[in-house]
Amino acid sequence: MQADQTAFRTMKDTPAREYLVSGSPLCPGCGGEIALKLALKAMGERTIVAFVPSCFGLLTLYPYSSMKNSTLFTPFACGPAAAQGIVDGINIRVEKGEIKDPRSKVLVLTGDGAAYDIGLQSTSGAIHRRLDFYYLCYDNEAYGNTGFQFSSATPFASATSTTHATESTPGNPLRKKDLFEVWRAHRPPYVATVAVSRPVDLLRKFEKASKIRGPKLFIALGVCPTGWGSEPRETVRVDRLAVETGIWPLKEAVGGRVVHTYVPRRRAPVEEYLKKQKRFQHLFSPKENRGAVQAIQNAVDSYWEGVSE
């Protein structure tokens, strides 16, 4: 999309109306909450949110709800399947003349635990069926709601409460699963990564997706002060460092073709990002684990070497 075709040129174009409201039980400085807030602004009032256990499961905590939208809270594995039911149910009722078309959209909202692990099958099914829906995964790279245990989104060398950093192991020994590519292999019409430090990019991606029928999938970096051991006030900074170090590439694939929507001109060294977080603290103190840090840097460099657009 050309810049002149978008309603979002600068941050000043961010819609004023809020759908995510204050008073949620989420931690101060939650990065994922910013992503959801912006996504709902872009999607608007006719959005039905189907969401699953995660910290965001607390966005409706009886008798309070922190989203103005209609919502359905479902078991962990089946957000996309529930979305299918909502879309199918409304469509057939419209088709049979039982109701007027409510022109609603359905957003599946999950953390990485559901997106990368337990809900991957139902997501695969929904994408494959070309369900017309949005999927937003806020990825805080672990099971944050249960106390920050390992998920398959956990990056290499991150300490979690089930991958401890010891003298012999630098936290998680496995690399982060590439969900973007897993999703893209299903050939959805639209898939993107987003980061809250680039809100205009985020809004534009939701805007672009809104013009496409079928599965529209988003992975948002979800900076998690509680789990990551970063300062709440530095959430957007940490997010920005993830982008500027190249650890969190901003990209989209329309019809399968991957385009990077922001390419950091000179990538900052990964240490700048890692050092802000206690989950990587063991890489620097009591003594530096140069090998692990270099491995992270190498993985980032090798990723960007393969990037042509």
Binding site: V21, G23, S24, P25, S65, M67, K68
Partner: peptide, 18 residues
């Protein structure tokens, strides 16, 4: 049925005390 019809009512929780 456990449902909320006053959606978006959480500002009444007043999390300012945190």
């Amino acid at each position: 049925t456990s449902l909320i019809m006053s959606t978006g009512n959480s500002p009444q929780k007043k999390t300012g005390g945190w």
